Computed example of a mutant assay.
Amino acid sequence: MRVVVVHNRYRSEHPSGEDRVVDQETELLTSAGHEVLVHERRSDDIAGMSLPRKASVPLLVPWNPAARTELADRLREVRPDVVHIHSTFPLLSPSVVAACTDAGVPCVATLHNYQQVCAPGTLYREGRVCTDCVGGSPLPAVRHGCYRGSPLATAPLALSLALNRRRWWSGVSRFFCISWALRRVLADAGMPGERLAVKYNFVEEPALRRTGEGEYVLYLGRLTEEKGVPLLLAAWDLLRARGGLGLPLVVAGSGPLEPEVAEWARERDDVRFLGLRTREECAELTARAAALVAPSQWLEGFGLVVVEAMAAGVPSVAAGHGAFPELVDDGVSGLLHRPGDAESLAEGLRRIVTHSASMGEAARRRYEQDFSPAAGLSGLLEGYRAAIAARSREPA
């Protein structure tokens, strides 16, 4: 097949799982003999824009006519079999869906988060899961300033959600939902269920896998409240007060809570704070871990870091909501803790250290079954073929 991948890359200082998924899928399709053309924009480019252009960016979030024209012209030139849309915020906009219609090319879209029903895409506000806008108006998001804590910054996203909802639903032949949990939310909000397919993200075979007992418990990710970092700190303090686990906690990542985490870890012999690490360093850290911890407070749409740990034969303790119950077989390939409960998280960490070897083996088997490159390629091609067939059945 000839596939055009459309994506707006995140800023470099905020490493994104979505960017990694796009890169891995592109490489996977290419290695399988398909021709992939990437049509992308980079949020990093905003910094180099003139002041008038920077000021215009929010105005183009709901609809960017130039992006529509540019993509439509390229599609007419290269005549792909299918277009695969990922993120369109902030430089592409949903106008790329109209571009596919203009050029007469079927398109699919991967839904990496909840942006079809939530302006910031998180279903999370003020320390709790929030569904105020799901299935209804996005005005609550503006009122509460759900994006960057600013009503002004949230308004373009909310406007895009209100204006383009039906365009997405009618213009995209097949949506890839990255978990059943995500699909349930979207279907309940009114999205067309016949177009919502579940396709898990895949993870490449790791260069390193765990070979011993593991040296530490690992947190790997953004240092934010919604990722459960304060909860992890509280749970680790509980464990320390009871004598500890016999293994240290290693924290790798960056984010708004980095100063707080660094201060908490300072002068402690049971915690190592590493800050942001490269992808290669993260892979090595994972392979040496006894267990990974993913205590997210918000409803994760997938959980790439958990699956990467599974690929390395490392089990996880994860929050028992969002997509995690689909990824972690509780008591078999890892453990689920009660969301938001530090005592439950501490108990899960204590138990998983004891059963790390057997759970790690089960986690690896689950990876091979559902999250390998072979499974990822099969899901992609099935969705592409369905989109092409749906377009061929449409009246001329």
Score class of each variant (00 low, 15 high):
residue 146 C to K: 08
residue 132 D to S: 15
residue 158 A to T: 04
residue 198 V to W: 05
residue 337 H to C: 13
residue 232 L to M: 06
residue 99 A to K: 05
residue 37 L to K: 10
residue 279 R to G: 11
residue 186 L to G: 09
residue 359 M to F: 00
residue 175 F to E: 09
residue 289 A to W: 01
residue 381 L to K: 04
residue 98 A to F: 10
residue 35 E to Q: 13
residue 362 A to Q: 03
residue 320 G to W: 04
residue 315 P to C: 07
residue 163 L to C: 13
residue 167 R to V: 14
residue 208 L to E: 15
residue 272 R to D: 05
residue 248 P to T: 04
residue 171 G to T: 03
residue 6 V to S: 02
residue 12 S to D: 15
residue 316 S to Q: 02
residue 6 V to N: 00
residue 307 V to D: 03
residue 181 A to D: 03
residue 83 V to I: 05
residue 74 R to H: 15
residue 295 P to Q: 07
residue 41 R to P: 06
residue 130 C to W: 04
residue 232 L to R: 04
residue 234 A to K: 15
residue 66 A to R: 15
residue 120 P to A: 00
residue 377 L to G: 04
residue 390 A to T: 09
residue 175 F to V: 08
residue 262 A to E: 14
residue 167 R to Y: 00
residue 61 V to Q: 11
residue 178 I to N: 12
residue 328 V to C: 00
residue 302 F to E: 12
residue 94 P to V: 12
residue 380 L to F: 07
residue 394 E to L: 12
residue 133 C to F: 07
residue 356 S to W: 09
residue 300 E to D: 12
residue 256 P to H: 12
residue 330 D to W: 03
residue 13 E to I: 11
residue 141 A to I: 10
residue 296 S to W: 10
residue 318 A to Y: 01
residue 343 E to I: 08
residue 5 V to E: 02
residue 339 P to M: 04
residue 52 P to L: 07
residue 15 P to N: 13
residue 153 A to F: 10
residue 126 E to P: 05
residue 301 G to P: 14
residue 394 E to C: 11
residue 124 Y to F: 15
residue 341 D to V: 08
residue 206 P to Q: 07
residue 93 S to C: 10
residue 8 N to H: 00
residue 135 G to C: 08
residue 377 L to V: 03
residue 108 V to G: 06
residue 4 V to C: 09
residue 288 R to G: 01
residue 74 R to N: 01
residue 46 I to R: 11
residue 387 A to Q: 07
residue 147 Y to C: 03
residue 361 E to P: 00
residue 241 A to T: 05
residue 259 P to V: 05
residue 151 P to A: 10
residue 349 L to N: 08
residue 340 G to V: 08
residue 309 A to D: 05
residue 118 C to P: 00
residue 129 V to C: 07
residue 85 I to Q: 09
residue 94 P to Y: 11
residue 104 G to E: 00
residue 111 L to F: 10
residue 143 R to S: 14
residue 116 Q to R: 14
residue 356 S to N: 08
residue 29 L to G: 08
residue 318 A to K: 11
residue 312 A to Y: 12
residue 346 A to C: 06
residue 67 A to N: 11
residue 345 L to Q: 08
residue 360 G to L: 09
residue 154 T to H: 02
residue 321 H to L: 01
residue 167 R to G: 15
residue 274 L to T: 01
residue 305 V to D: 06
residue 216 Y to N: 01
residue 52 P to V: 02
residue 152 L to R: 13
residue 65 P to F: 00
residue 328 V to F: 03
residue 267 E to I: 11
residue 221 G to N: 08
residue 88 T to S: 13
residue 133 C to Y: 03
residue 187 A to P: 13
residue 321 H to I: 12
residue 367 Y to P: 09
residue 377 L to P: 09
residue 8 N to F: 10
residue 149 G to N: 09
residue 366 R to N: 05
residue 219 Y to Q: 11
residue 240 R to V: 11
residue 21 V to R: 08
residue 99 A to I: 10
residue 148 R to S: 13
residue 34 H to Q: 07
residue 140 P to Y: 05
residue 354 T to R: 15
residue 215 E to P: 10
